[in-house]
Nucleic acid binder design. Structure first.
Lengths: 208, 208
DNA sequence: TTAATTCATTGACTTTCATTCAGTTTTGTG
DNA sequence: CACAAAACTGAATGAAAGTCAATGAATTAA
């Protein structure tokens, strides 16, 4: 019945609202001041809730970071593999571009904290599988390369292992250098430069 | 006079010994348990000094990290540029190999903490110049490439900017992926694989 | 409707830990 | 020796993460 459904929702809706208030307060403060310089109390005050309330929704302070970039950060690989009508080059370029666009969108402070949290092997859950983001990205990239071989776009002797490692470490490297320097190494222009000047020549020997 | 010199030294030597005791205690504990899981008190106890003594030698807890990999971490570029009798390929290979060997020698836990500390732009002093490690590495790599052009080993149209960025981000990326996964991506074998399968083809178009 | 139950919320409390500092000991100098 | 300077000590401080018993609003069962 309508009344029943509505009643059930009151608690859920309020809880969802509280959670959202906490997330946006955290995002606002962390983006502005950096993770280390924001206390739970700051977040709670900004969100107009108590510190204890924070812990209803997050087990540890760090956990808020997972929330803040959860969005598409882990869906990248899947999206790329869905581009079945496109060729290898296009899918690869799309992957690189999306990776870099995504971290830019997330913002440098949250990105920094993400690295800090993940620099020690941390298990995450992606579609019910326990894995690390890196392993996930690595396997996705391997799949992309192997698909290229299967379709006859790349030679059989392509070193898929090293190539997947190379492309992913390159992207992670750009992310880290960005965080370390604040320099503009991840814009759209930069992606294209990287793709055209470096990646294309590196792949040349393995093109059919 | 001998006595004077000796007396002056007692203090200096003792201070140096205390400092050393602190550094090795810190290294031992951090390598074993990770930076976050080691308190100043732990380090002080292990070194057999007081907590206050730690602060005679280090301003902040983090500062111990700088000490722990200070050794050759920042001298790499200079060393490479001194190999003037070698060709571009050899110097580049040497650079990559040394970079990865160095971080392996330093150890994964200290490496992790180094990234955590440096992920936000931090100024360090290298031969009286205030800079960041990354900028330093970047400029060194550019110099190496430009030297290659000057000697006629590389074509004039080599995109030195992107190439320097690419090689360094690759190395930083490997460091980060190593820390994230604990996987063996930085051994000597891996360096050679990376150099032969990826770097060599990528450079091909710019070879004379 | 009323009583029982669930659960988000609160904020004071506990704990841990980096950092400081007033006082003590050791070393150097005239 | 007497005084100064540096090294050292460990208890005290303060900040911040995380806990928990109590509260009361929402929900369910009777």
């Amino acid at each position: 019945m309508g009344t029943l459904e509505k009643k059930i929702k009151i608690r859920q809706v309020r809880a969802a609202e509280t959670r959202k208030k906490i997330v946006s307060a955290a995002k606002k403060l962390i983006t502005k001041n950096g993770f280390e310089n924001v206390s739970i109390e700051d977040i709670a005050k900004e969100a107009d809730v108590s510190t204890g309330s924070f812990y209803t929704y997050f087990k540890k302070k760090e956990d808020i970071i997972e929330e803040l970039n959860q969005a598409d950060f882990y869906r990248l690989a899947e999206i790329t593999n869905e581009l079945t009508d496109k060729g290898f080059d296009e899918r690869l370029k799309y992957y690189c571009r999306e990776f870099l666009t995504e971290i830019e969108r997330v913002g440098i402070e949250i990105c920094r904290q993400w690295i800090r949290s993940n620099i020690a092997p941390v298990k995450i859950v992606i579609s019910d599988n326990e894995t690390t983001k890196y392993d996930h990205d690595y396997l996705a990239m391997r799949a992309l390369i192997e698909e290229g071989v299967r379709r006859g776009e790349l030679t059989d002797d392509v070193p898929a292992d090293e190539l997947a490692l190379f492309i992913n470490t390159q992207l992670y490297g750009l992310m880290v250098v960005w965080c370390m320097t604040d320099a503009s190494v991840i814009g759209s222009d930069k992606t294209d430069e990287f793709y055209d000047n470096i990646l294309t020549p590196a792949l040349m020997p393995y093109k059919r």
